[in-house]
Design a protein around this nucleic acid. Structure first.
Lengths: 363, 363
DNA sequence: TTGTAAGCGTTATCAG
DNA sequence: CTGATAACGCTTACAA
């Protein structure tokens, strides 16, 4: 904003018309007819001068900034934020809007500060995103601004939200293992009591039950969601003779630890042990050997959906806030090389389960 | 921006003064004295009404938007973007500014579109960032806007830039290995001919030479910078009897591959083989076992420095653009468990090199 | 110490 | 079909 830019006034002068006319032609005002000749004159002038309308002035006048705010809890530590933001950005840009990004670091103090800064700038709406699926408390300042929650829910607030379909994810994971023929399964779940932990376990169990698995053929243990946690849990799980032949890990990092445990135990993946992860953190899922089959989290899609939703809300105006839409998005399973049929020694002649994956992608 | 917010006019009415006075007290205009009583009256009114100044109007008037744009090439695939943005955001917020984030996906088309969108919004300046250190071509539209390059250089443009100090990184890596007592070193470099590849090799060699290493005690090979590349290179490197006892890897992902090669060869890390990586991608450097000692890339710092720089440029005005400052930032070495003295079998009684790490952090 | 009024760059209403 | 002109919400000479 340092050097003065070309204004509509200069274009008008150059074209020898009034600024009104310039505005008319440049905005293609419906119902306003302008002579073809003057139209080209104006367009030429604008082009020649390199005129770019000043959004600030436009927004001031139209009460619409075509700008949205993205407030995330931690943008730097996980690779997730980028995908969500990209999804948001893509749909925003399609509407000539752009997005302010701020990161709170989980500090209420700075969150308030940042939201204030966004509001001051008259953002049309706000995307409030968590980096992991959880219930959140809505900052009070957002009560009167179009808002949608990403990876977060806030009961009673009437604010739309979108989260991953955890149950479906658990089902898909079980499905992958069952389809490969496994009949002795384990799930290393997150110790933390969060929606993802509940949902994935529910889905995993449900799908296993549907396949007729006995209770004692499905073990569920909990661990810290890092490689060390996975390692410890796997050592325990794999110590017994009737060890599981397929393990579903709460996330990919944790899965790294079970890879290590398996290696130490002389268990080959996938011949002796099949593993499925969660998150599809490319850097680990692709980096590990053999590649990790895993369930992807729909970050981009959540960002995109939320933004569509936000614009709908903005366009609907402050009037009726109809039943706030909410959505669970299912992520795809990414097949790599960590799943194979169980070796004969452990699961002789088991029949394969038919795949369930043909169900439609979105819950 | 949907519902009409409180304006300065309403505050004035509520306080029973003119809008001028409100402006004066709220902005603490220097040299303007206002009666203590009216000051509190105004402040009360503002608080009561929940007044928040409209930045758009302010900007229009003051020709300063307190807004900067961040254009990155890919924001979603690497975990780096988040850190750079966070650095930028932190210093921006300290100046009551906020940042628009856009990602180009390496497509000129969308880059132009996005930059236009930013300019239209009168950003005060632009941060142009690459996710890996490289020379770039400056989009022409940025020629007349305060700009600073992050992780990128553009010779002849006169635009300030900040990049990692690759040479120092290479030196530090060598230093870690030499200090541990290693005398047979290898560097698995990136096949791509990029500044990081040149710089790190230069630094690594220089430091090794300084330690008196012979040429044949330092092998340099190239590979794709992924686990597979590292694996292949390591297999080759470790096949010989006079294998290196310490390997420096161009990056952490590649290092994952050498971990695997070592495991297959029955070489223990760090007892039989020491490894140092680059990037400090926590998820792999911490996830791998034993933890990977690595050189961190100063993403946050680059983002922060660039933003300081940008504000300086903005405040200096469009007048003199003095010798554009440029900076190489050295990243810290993150010590974990992948480096130890070479085992006796291979390097009997070698003396330890004194550490070089005490040198100041910034080049 | 406080207020009037101009103007930042647009859009929109209403006359010509 | 085209053009004055009044907002939009704010800062800032300049007056009172």
């Amino acid at each position: 904003m340092t050097q003065r830019r070309v204004t509509i006034k200069q274009v008008a002068a150059e074209a020898g018309v009034s600024i009104t006319t310039v505005s008319h032609v440049l905005n293609d005002v419906p119902g306003k007819r302008v002579h073809p000749d003057t139209r080209v004159r104006v367009e030429d002038a604008a082009r020649r001068l390199g005129y770019v309308p000043n959004s600030l002035a436009q927004s001031l006048r139209t009460q619409r900034s075509n700008t949205i705010g993205f407030v995330g809890d931690e943008i730097a530590t996980t690779p997730f934020a980028g995908k969500i933001i990209l999804g948001a950005q893509d749909v925003a840009l399609a509407r000539d809007a752009v997005v302010f990004v701020v990161s709170t670091g989980y500090q209420r103090e700075v969150e308030n500060r940042e939201i204030e800064e966004l509001l001051r700038r008259q953002v049309d709406g706000i995307l409030y995103a968590s980096m992991y699926h959880r219930p959140v408390e809505l900052p009070p300042q957002l009560a009167s601004v179009p808002t949608v929650l990403i990876n977060a829910t806030c009961t009673g607030s009437g604010v739309p939200w979108v989260v991953p379909d955890e149950v479906a994810g658990g089902e898909d994971a079980a499905d992958v293992l069952l389809t490969a023929g496994h009949r002795r399964l384990a799930f290393i779940n997150d110790v933390d009591e969060i929606p993802a932990a509940f949902g994935r376990e529910e889905g995993f169990r449900r799908r296993a039950a549907r396949a007729g698995l006995h209770d004692d053929d499905l073990r569920v243990v909990t661990a810290e969601t890092d490689p060390a946690g996975g390692y410890a849990a796997a050592r325990q799980l794999l110590a017994h003779a009737d060890r599981p032949t397929g393990i579903f890990c709460f996330n990919d990092r944790l899965a790294m630890g079970v890879y290590r445990a398996a290696a130490e135990l002389g268990l080959r993946i996938p011949e002796d042990l099949s593993i499925v992860g969660f998150d599809n953190q490319e850097i680990v899922a692709e980096g590990v050997h053999p590649g990790l089959t895993t369930i992807e989290l729909p970050h981009y899609e959540m960002g995109a959906w939320a933004t569509e939703q936000l614009f709908d809300q903005i366009e609907a105006g402050p009037g009726a806030r109809p039943a706030a839409p909410a959505r669970k998005l299912r992520g795809p399973v990414i097949h790599r090389a960590s799943v194979a049929p169980p070796s004969r020694g452990h699961d002789p002649g088991e029949r394969r389960e038919p795949s369930d994956l043909a169900r439609q992608r979105q819950a």
